[in-house]
Computed example of a mutant assay.
Amino acid sequence: MQPCGPSRRPADDWLHEIEFDGYRSQIHVSADGTRIFTGSGLNWTKRLTSIAAAWAGAGVDRAVVDGEIVVVVDSRTDFGALQADLAAGRQDRMLFCAFDLLHLDGHDLRKMPLRESKRLLRELIERTGLGPPIIYSDHMDDGVAMFAGAEKLNWEGIVSKRSDAPYRSGDRSDSWQKIKTSKRETFPIVGYVPAMGGIAALHVARREGKALRYVGKVGTGFTMKVSADLRRRLDALPAPKTKLFAKKHIKAVEPTLVAHVEYRDITADGYLRHPSFKGLAED
């Protein structure tokens, strides 16, 4: 897999960054103090006091910085760890990865080409001596090399951005392209966890020759409608001739249905990491 969109244009038209697995956010610095807002507009300043304090002490009068709140575990951003830390009120592992500068000291930079606003952002961070928990999100011009590094380091993927494009709110436009490193495969469904009106999770296996090897639970990717439909189909299946697990809360079924599953990788003990249901293999 390669970043197909940007490769069709000259290399200097695009820049390529790490895709972080966290919460998109903005830091607003003004005379009234430093505030942090999520992508949906929630004020998280009180939940992220260490990050707010770092910006407040940088000597910047007014600024708006776009970035992502993350927690890094084993050299990669980990959304589950971030959610757990937020729930526990823990901030020591949280970082703000800054990737664009929207306003600085009264100047609106949103119409400036991305490459220039990122240059100003880097200079701002270096000039003020900001360090962790503030991290500058660097980029590469070579998207193929960036993606190869993302695969090797097991990152979520990369984000390819038009370097000459002005700022646009959100991240879904022709100027931004996300290229995932996730894998996708089909797995027979060998069990499920019932829930009210649907299912809580699927349990899947990989076919190896004539045998099946259990590879874990898939607990995300279902809408309410999909969950209810899966429950109806799974309830109609008979019990298997051979069970692959002995957990009482899992209802084992004959592996008749096959699921498309997207996942990050395989753990050391052979289970899918961060799997997500993408649909049934109807054929």
Score class of each variant (00 low, 15 high):
residue 1 M to C: 10
residue 2 Q to R: 15
residue 8 R to M: 13
residue 9 R to D: 15
residue 9 R to I: 06
residue 12 D to Q: 08
residue 13 D to A: 13
residue 21 D to G: 09
residue 22 G to E: 00
residue 23 Y to K: 07
residue 23 Y to G: 01
residue 26 Q to L: 10
residue 27 I to D: 04
residue 27 I to N: 02
residue 31 A to C: 08
residue 31 A to F: 09
residue 33 G to V: 03
residue 39 G to N: 13
residue 43 N to I: 00
residue 49 T to S: 15
residue 49 T to D: 10
residue 50 S to E: 14
residue 53 A to L: 06
residue 61 D to S: 15
residue 62 R to I: 12
residue 66 D to Y: 06
residue 66 D to L: 04
residue 85 D to M: 07
residue 90 R to V: 15
residue 90 R to E: 11
residue 91 Q to L: 08
residue 95 L to Q: 13
residue 96 F to M: 02
residue 96 F to Q: 02
residue 97 C to S: 15
residue 101 L to P: 10
residue 102 L to G: 12
residue 103 H to G: 03
residue 106 G to C: 13
residue 107 H to K: 14
residue 109 L to D: 06
residue 114 L to G: 06
residue 117 S to V: 00
residue 118 K to M: 10
residue 121 L to G: 10
residue 123 E to I: 14
residue 128 T to K: 04
residue 129 G to N: 03
residue 129 G to C: 04
residue 129 G to L: 03
residue 132 P to N: 08
residue 135 I to R: 15
residue 135 I to C: 13
residue 136 Y to K: 05
residue 137 S to Y: 09
residue 147 F to I: 08
residue 148 A to K: 11
residue 149 G to C: 08
residue 153 L to E: 13
residue 156 E to T: 07
residue 157 G to T: 02
residue 157 G to K: 04
residue 163 S to H: 00
residue 163 S to M: 06
residue 166 P to V: 03
residue 168 R to G: 13
residue 178 K to C: 08
residue 178 K to T: 14
residue 179 I to T: 15
residue 179 I to Q: 09
residue 180 K to T: 15
residue 181 T to V: 05
residue 183 K to N: 12
residue 185 E to A: 10
residue 195 A to R: 11
residue 197 G to A: 06
residue 198 G to F: 02
residue 198 G to E: 04
residue 202 L to V: 01
residue 203 H to L: 12
residue 207 R to D: 07
residue 211 A to W: 13
residue 211 A to D: 15
residue 224 M to A: 15
residue 225 K to M: 10
residue 226 V to L: 12
residue 233 R to G: 15
residue 236 A to D: 13
residue 243 K to E: 12
residue 243 K to C: 10
residue 248 K to H: 12
residue 248 K to N: 14
residue 249 H to L: 13
residue 249 H to S: 15
residue 252 A to M: 05
residue 256 T to N: 13
residue 260 H to R: 10
residue 261 V to F: 01
residue 264 R to F: 08
residue 266 I to T: 06
residue 269 D to A: 01
residue 271 Y to P: 02
residue 275 P to W: 06
residue 276 S to H: 02
residue 279 G to T: 01
residue 279 G to Y: 03
residue 280 L to G: 04
residue 282 E to H: 07
residue 283 D to G: 05
